[in-house]
């Protein structure tokens, strides 16, 4: 029982770590960014390249993954995304799907279609004893990361000037602009930051998921579930949703393996029917 809950939390944190960036770009900035998985993939490949080609350690590689995804995100924001902030959501869908197609082809070209080798550092392999449970070290690490990122984001958004500006700009762009906030630059930074988070999540997922070029599309549904069930545009929402989804999925597969494939979707549909705007609709962040 205990270990199942633990694994569920760890899996949930994995989903949260990748999806939280989507909550920033899609939720806060209301851009239907289906290319989110592609940014996570960029982070994953950046980390793998840093480790396998340049011999960096895992932790510096995590930094590299954030930087790489944020850079690419920034460039694309400047060249493409910027022009579509006020376009119809369906145009945004078309653009981001186009980007996904390009990214899949590009990564297949440079890295080949098979999965990338990844071995976590010695300190994160195997399992250890925690409160009477034999828990996987890597999973414990994911949980720690999840809480750290949650705390960091809440702090930045609620306690800093930057966070206040973002909240203002998201609520009412016009008024925010009137008060002298440079909205365009702010959105540029926020978008790049969201992509960076995706990249970091992608790198952290290496210990559990296999990284290959179709990563960009394969897990997209799970990220969308977390963001939408949680309530787009919040940070706490996706966190809670990720925990629930993770626990429901792992516990379901453990106790009711016959229904393993169905549970997570049933859970999503029911939650959304009961709470159409997500568990924690956007009001306070």
């Amino acid at each position: 029982m205990g270990i199942v809950i633990f694994d569920g939390i760890a899996y949930g944190m994995l989903l949260f770590l990748i999806a939280v960036g989507l909550s920033v770009t899609m939720g806060l900035m209301s851009f239907v960014n289906l290319a989110h998985g592609a940014f996570a993939m960029i982070g994953g490949y950046a980390a793998v390249t840093a480790m396998n080609q340049f011999g960096l350690g895992f932790f510096p590689a995590l930094v590299a993954s954030f930087v790489a995804a944020a850079l690419v995100g920034g460039v694309l924001e400047f060249t493409l995304y910027r022009r579509l902030y006020r376009a119809h959501p369906l145009d945004q869908v078309l653009l981001s799907i186009g980007l996904v197609f390009v990214s899949v082809a590009v990564f297949t070209y440079f890295f080949g279609p098979t999965i990338q080798a990844f071995s976590p550092p010695e300190s994160l392999t195997g399992s250890m004893s925690l409160m009477g449970l034999e828990v996987g070290r890597y999973r414990l690490f994911l949980i720690v990361c999840g809480f750290a990122i949650l705390a960091g984001l809440l702090l930045v958004l609620n306690r800093t000037r930057y966070g206040a500006m973002v909240r203002a700009a998201v609520d009412n762009q016009r008024v925010a602009r009137g008060t002298g906030i440079h909205v365009q630059r702010l959105f540029f930074l926020t978008f790049a930051f969201g992509c960076g988070l995706a990249g970091l999540g992608g790198a952290l997922s290496l210990g559990i998921l296999g990284l290959e070029p179709s990563f960009a599309l394969k897990y997209l549904i799970f990220f969308l579930i977390v963001v939408c069930v949680g309530g787009a545009g919040t940070i706490i929402g996706p966190f809670v949703a990720a925990l629930l989804v993770g626990i429901v999925d792992v516990a379901g597969k453990y106790y009711l393996p016959e229904l393993g494939a169905f549970l997570i979707y049933v859970f999503m549909v029911i939650t959304l029917l009961v709470r159409p705007n997500g568990l924690i609709p956007r009001k306070g962040l």
């Binding site: 022009r83 653009l95 186009g98 980007l99 197609f101 082809a105 297949t108």
Partner: peptide, 22 residues
């Protein structure tokens, strides 16, 4: 056959950039 996705993706992006609403 290998990399048509690249060109199709570019095509979609160009369509969005050139004309909204398909």
């Amino acid at each position: 056959p290998q990399y048509w996705m690249f060109w199709l993706g570019i095509f979609l992006i160009v369509v969005v950039m050139v004309g909204r609403g398909g």
